[in-house]
Design a protein around this nucleic acid. Structure first.
Length: 231
DNA sequence: GACCAGGCACATC
DNA sequence: GATGTGCATGGT
């Protein structure tokens, strides 16, 4: 009977062999990565790129730049990314947090032990588990596995677990069975998004999916059990 | 024209 | 504590 570890390795290698390296996160600076992580909440990345381009063109794609913008002006600039009023507030909340706690310096924030930083980020209004973990992994290079809607859908559709599983349980599954490695976590999550976009849509297009028929038939029961144990 | 996209906070029960 | 709802644009 294959272990969870072997299944996760198999998924990774199939995806990597099929798609190659994804070079994530798309962003030139740490601050841009964080802005992208907030703007992409429940939003197509293409729309986020337009919003980021607007911020860059306006010369405000930096902490002090966003801090001095009025909320209406910020909302206007990020309009293409959708939910622009809410996201303007969320960006403001993050920048205020950065200014207040770290003198506006991401370098200072990065010195924080990641479990501490994670819980502090989660206290910022507008930053939930996925956004916090994306910031930790992609902006600060901390070994944190990011879970997103694609991860849930892919793991569910391939019956890696049975029934409902929450964010923490799924994250724990990856982090407890894989070595703690930023580069692996980075590439793995990016590949899950890639295969999710192409094949694992709400209306599946499994025909040429590299994960098709990956798992042995008798694996179902053990899979569910293993995850419920939270190991 | 409906569906979808790299969530989150808040209200309500 | 579980479940439902608002937020909004642009591509398919």
């Amino acid at each position: 009977m294959p272990s969870i570890r072997l299944v996760l390795d198999e998924i990774f290698h199939r995806l990597f062999d099929h798609f190659g390296p994804q070079h994530w996160w798309p962003g030139r600076t740490r601050f841009e990565i964080i802005v992208g992580a907030i703007l992409t909440q429940n939003t197509n990345w293409g729309n986020v790129e337009r919003a980021i381009a607007n911020l860059r063109r306006a010369g405000v794609l930096n902490p002090s730049g966003l801090a001095r913008l009025t909320r209406p002006r910020l909302a206007r600039l990020i309009q293409p990314s959708g939910y622009y009023n809410i996201k303007a507030d969320r960006l403001k909340h993050f920048v205020k947090f950065l200014m207040r706690e770290y003198d506006g310096r991401l370098a200072k924030m990065s010195l924080e032990p990641w479990p501490v930083l994670r819980s502090r980020l989660l206290n910022v209004n507008g930053i939930g588990p996925e956004t916090a973990d994306s910031i930790l992994l992609y902006a600060f290079n901390k070994p944190v596995f990011v879970i997103d809607a694609y991860t849930f859908r892919i793991m569910s559709r391939h019956k890696i677990f049975k029934g409902p599983v929450d964010y923490a349980a799924l994250q724990n599954l990856f982090m407890s069975h894989l070595k703690s490695d930023c580069r692996l976590y980075n590439e793995y999550h990016a590949l899950l998004v890639r295969v999710g976009k192409e094949f694992c849509r709400p209306r599946p297009r499994c025909h040429a999916c590299p994960l098709k028929e990956m798992l042995p038939r008798d694996f179902t029961t053990v899979r569910g059990f293993d995850i419920m144990e939270g190991r």
